[in-house]
Amino acid sequence: MLTLSEILSNKPAPTLLVGVDFGLPHFDADLHELGLLAESGGLQPVARLTCKRKAPDPALFVGSGKADEIKALAMMHGAVEVVFDQSLSPAQQRNLERHIGLPVNDRTLLILEIFGQRARSHEGKLQVELARQQYLSTRLVRRWSHLERQSGGIGMRGGPGETQIELDRRMINDSIKRIKDRLVKVKRQRNTQRRQRERRDTFNISLVGYTNAGKSTLFNALVKARAFAADQLFATLDTTTRQLYLGEAGRSVSLSDTVGFIRDLPHGLVEAFQATLQEATDADLLLHVVDAANPNFPEQMAEVQKVLTEIGADAVPQLLVFNKLDALDAERYPLQLQDQYEVDGVSVPRVFLSAKSGKGLDLLRSALSGIVMAALPSVEAKIADPRDLTREYPGGLN
């Protein structure tokens, strides 16, 4: 039976998408985001199925009747893979595969596989592999028959009667330990580079935001870089840092483009990407890029804030950048391109712009110059939290 990684490495595979509404807020009834994830990973969604339940079925997640419906729908559309929008337990995944007769995977593995495809740097590949190994370590619950064999005896690893599942778990745990050790070295190198920047008195700015909000497009527009940018989820995984010269401030700042966030980002990925996301934690300012044309932008902003809290970057001051101004309808077009927006009870400066057309970029540069000048040691006005930005620019950075 093919695994998701095997399918993703070949031509687009017909895939059935399944979502279960447990009454939680912001349920994606159209499975729009899961469809984008599937397409980004090289899958071809051919059908979508949603249903409602009060709680997950312990054995099949959706119950036997709905599992039969999934099987029939997959056969009708020629699907060779089923992907759930929620995380499945190892037992539920195994039972569904036996019931449906097709590979069944969840949102978590799909995101992991996309990260695996897109990672380019040595550090990024290490981080993805760590998250993947941690995910696989929870899947060793007799999902495959070979895990039920025992090994032991003279000249064999594992000792008498050690099962294959125990051997595999030990191998994965050893692999996780090796990757963590290598990432410690990477983190040490990053800390050295960070100390060098601090000695040069560099003001550090990090771009953060929901995936596909246009961070890399904005990054390229500001620093004239050639970072990969595309209209797809997780186009950028590896952190890229460039110098940005601000004429009004008369100095350069360090600008970093980081990985995008997403709803239900696997916790293992958040942990694994600590070294990369450290750029956001140690920044002097976060440019929180928001897709203003997306009607669900408040929920996306909330997800970004959630991850920032997880990595300890929630106290870093922010400047909101509402991107994709060119894609806004006339009735949604802002009355002014600079104002204030409340985030977690705090009024935060906001700038509207289009990184694609360039409109509003001059306003952003001016706002950044003002913030950097206010943060210069000679002014003795170190920015401690977003409220300081509001006090410095009470009129909305005008």
Rank of each mutant, 00 (worst) to 15 (best):
S9P: 03
K11Y: 12
P12D: 05
L17N: 02
L17C: 06
V20D: 00
P25K: 05
P58W: 01
L60M: 03
V62Y: 01
G63T: 02
K66G: 03
E69F: 09
A72S: 15
V80T: 14
N95E: 12
D106G: 08
R107F: 04
G116N: 13
G116Y: 07
L130F: 03
A131W: 03
R132M: 12
L136G: 04
L140S: 03
R143F: 02
G152V: 08
G152S: 03
G153A: 10
E166R: 15
E166P: 04
L167I: 13
D168C: 08
R169N: 05
M171V: 09
K177H: 14
K177Q: 14
D181T: 15
R194Q: 11
Y210E: 01
G214Q: 02
V223Y: 09
V223S: 09
K224H: 14
R226P: 03
L233N: 00
D238C: 06
R242E: 12
E248G: 05
S252K: 13
V253F: 03
L255Y: 05
T258G: 09
H288M: 10
A293I: 00
N294T: 01
N296R: 13
E299H: 11
A313L: 02
D326K: 08
L328H: 10
V346I: 14
A355S: 12
K359N: 10
G360R: 03
A375H: 12
K382W: 08
D388G: 05
Y393T: 09
